[in-house]
């Protein structure tokens, strides 16, 4: 006999609950802080200032010139990749927190558990949208903006959200059993961040004397980067917001493949662990 709880009228995925939980996240996020939503912008601004000062001025990092936008400023090059990374980081860590922090709810009330990471991802999508909107505004005032890329920015944001959600589902579910997954993920994300050309130009991966790529454990680092989804995602946002042109279909295909894989693996693992969450949390 299978362990199922049947109902005569099977309810659909409760979209309204998803919406309400997203609102809860958004409303709760900056309550009781003077700046409120200002924090949502201040945080990346300060991060941007620090990285620009350290890498742009002290290390004299030179970004590739924007083609065809003509922008040639480290801070704009940095921010278009950095915002995408932060969104990813928040999505994954938020998913872990959403299960760990709602144990009370999970133990007492039934609803599809995946709603919790999903709602967190959506709330970060809103923050991300605000940040991107601010960036576009600043670009329009101080540099230039090609409005034709905007529809694809939306698609890219949703794609990245789903990619991070898939990974978030995976780690948040495993974290129910092993609580140190949370800390492990934090460390892994840090390594991942510096392993992705976000603060540095990927040209630095080439040895200036020999003109060849560096190797890690005998493997060409650029090959490793090609397998790094975030290399492609940060690249996509740079294509759209820094170079301000459309990506190739091939590049979009790669991103869709990464996202699909992440969502598939994430939801399979999540579904396996879901029935026991109420007991294990």
């Amino acid at each position: 006999m299978t362990a199922t709880a049947r109902r005569r009228k099977r309810p659909d995925y409760p979209l309204e609950l998803l919406w309400n939980l997203t609102l809860r996240e958004l409303r709760g996020k900056y309550k009781r802080s003077i700046l409120g939503w200002g924090w949502s912008l201040l945080n990346p601004l300060v991060q941007l200032a620090v990285y620009s000062a350290v890498f742009g001025i002290l290390f004299k990092a030179t970004p590739p010139p924007g083609d065809p936008s003509g922008i040639h400023a480290y801070s704009f090059w940095l921010v278009s990749g950095l915002l995408a990374w932060n969104f990813h980081l928040n999505g994954v860590m938020g998913a872990i927190g959403s299960l760990a922090g709602n144990g009370n709810l999970i133990r007492k009330v039934y609803f599809p558990r995946s709603i919790l990471p999903f709602a967190t991802s959506l709330s970060w999508l809103v923050s991300f949208a605000i940040e991107i909107a601010a960036l576009i505004l600043i670009l329009a005032v101080f540099q230039t903006i090609n409005l034709a890329v905007l529809p694809l920015v939306v698609v890219a944001a949703v794609l990245l959200m789903l990619f991070s959600l898939g990974l978030g589902l995976l780690v948040s579910a495993v974290n129910v059993y092993f609580r140190d997954i949370e800390y492990l993920t934090q460390i892994a994300l840090q390594v991942w961040f510096f392993g992705t050309p976000i603060v540095y130009n990927e040209k630095l991966l080439t040895n200036p004397k020999t003109g060849l790529h560096y190797h890690l454990l005998g493997i060409d680092v650029l090959t490793i980067e090609k397998l790094n989804p975030m290399y492609h995602f940060t690249g996509l946002f740079r294509t759209l917001l820094y170079h301000q042109t459309w990506p190739t279909f091939g590049e979009i295909g790669v991103l869709v493949a990464f996202t699909a894989t992440s969502l598939l693996v994430g939801s399979i693992v999540f579904r396996r662990i879901e029935p026991r969450m109420a007991e294990e949390l």
Binding site: A3, A5, R6, R7, I106, R107, V109, R276
Partner: peptide
């Protein structure tokens, strides 16, 4: 309430 899933058996709620 379905917060806990039984290993065997079924529960039908109308």
């Amino acid at each position: 309430t379905r917060t806990i899933r039984p290993e065997t058996g079924t529960i039908t709620v109308d």
